[in-house]
Amino acid sequence: MKKRNEVLYFALRNKKLLIGSGIILIFLLLAWVGPAFAKYKPFDYANPLGAEPPSTEYWFGTTFFGQDVFSQFVNGLRATFIVGLLGGGLGTLVGMIIGFAAGYRGGILDEILNAFTNIVLVIPTLAVLLIIAAYLQVRSLLMECLFIGLTAWPWAARAIRAQTFSLRTRDFVDLARLSGMKPYKIVRREIAPNMMSYLVLVFILQFGGAILTAATLDFIGLGPTNAISLGLMMQYAVLWGALPLGMWWWFVPPGLAITAIVGALYSMNVGLDEIFNPKLREM
């Protein structure tokens, strides 16, 4: 109980964590309630006049086709959080499974998994994603999460493997093994809790990475085929001449939101690192 109080004590005094989580909360709220406030559907041709700068009727202006940018923005924000949560979550999960298995078992299994990790690590994730996405005629948001999660795990697996390596020779793990505990249970009860803080950091970085990867895929035209996303908004803006026409309200919000969310995640990451790791605390 005392330890938890200590973590909370430092957490509430860590500016990086507070600012980071504050920004995330604001955007999360916007993604949650925003669509209810949007007067139009993302793809509806709401404004008969076409492109217009922000006004009281169209809060973020309208696109070249007269679509409401605010509606696209809040709905795209929702997709961004879903990709981060599911894609990043899956990446962390696969990384944990492979990292724990390789690190705890060692031996031949470790050799094989490590070689496999190194190979997947060298292949540029985006290249694989784009060839898969290109061949699928209909793509959903969930599919995008699945692909991103299944290609993003290698560095997480490597980091978790290294941590597991250093933990598995500790006395309490030996003790658990002597008492006849099953390997799966040892990992779950003895090893994982001791690197919980580390796993949280991995998840945050995977979350941010998944958002950036999804933005890239969407921007290049391989995102979900039936939904709006922030990357897709930027693609439309570029393809339909928002730059030469000076329609800044079309391309500034989506990029700004991604930068703010991912930046806030990084800031939280550094802040949490300082909380968990006493050596890094600013005195």
């Binding site: 921007f219 930027m234 570029v238 500034v252 990029g255 700004l256 930068t259 930046g263």
Partner: peptide, 28 residues
Amino acid sequence: YVLTATPYMWLGILLAWFFGIVLGLFPI
């Protein structure tokens, strides 16, 4: 930290818009 969080295409879009269109210094 802000720079590493910026999606590549967005910075590209901003630079193209500002230096290419607003200031007219570079072709886009």
